[in-house]
Amino acid sequence: MLKPAVPSKKVPKAVKKKNYNPHQLGKKANAILNTMLAVFAFSCVFPFLYVIIISLTDESVLEKNGFSLLPETWSFEAYQFLWAIKSQLLQSYMITIAVTVLGTIISVFTIAFYAYAISRPQFKFRKQFTFFAFFTMLFNGGLVPFYIVATQVLHLRDTIWALILPMAVNAFYILIMRTFFQRSVPESILESARIDGASELRIYFQIVLPLSLPGLATIALFSTLGYWNDWFNALLFIDNPALVPLQSLLMKIENTLEFIRQNTLLTGSVKGIMQSVPKDAAKMAMVVIATLPIAVSYPFFQRYFIQGLTIGGVKE
């Protein structure tokens, strides 16, 4: 998992001893803190590097020596294996991307609408609706009722909506967004807009939303990550191989391996089961291609992400 880089305090190069800077860290403290942060940053990146190395290791070396940082033989075999199953992989990629994009849009809009409504003091039932959302954070119906509603009432089974709708609204994000609106969009701006004759919708789309971009980006990032990494909904609702998202494909492989481990005596009679399970290197290669897009897109969000969590857009 990548962590937001901590903006390093720039130390002016030519600091003369006379110019006492009250914010300047002592040399020792500076060195220690920098090392600590460096170690922390490295330990965040290291596992991922390791995964990449394993994915490039020759399978027979893995069998013999286990994982190592500097493998005896490098090989692209794992990626060739992925190329061989590219039809399923690409299909899953498309599903994941479609679900993530569509899901993020739907989820950001729904959450922003809801949060805006309960953030405005003019709304009479805002307390009740806040509680209505908040309540779901404390209690939920559990897995089985959730499954019944999704399959037998909404008929989501084996549709792409089964992957999108269950995660579209999240009470926690609503509360974050509500706080954000309350803090960064002052009533006075809205008042002045009203005086100028703007309708509620116009106020929302032309004033509130542009002012809240950092907050929206934060929610969008959370949702994107959530959708990208989701596999459980697919496990529950998707039987059609053409609709299986990438993470779910990975989980299936993991589950199948675990299953084989627990039922060691079965494998002899299950023809073909062993051949269909990718080996370690191939698994890691899948992790790489499943993680890379989200890791690459992260820096684009990062700027907003930090702002969104720390300061509001307007100063009074």
Partner: peptide, 11 residues
Amino acid sequence: DWGDYDKKMQV
């Protein structure tokens, strides 16, 4: 799939 069957059938 092999590994998913048990969980899925429970639900």
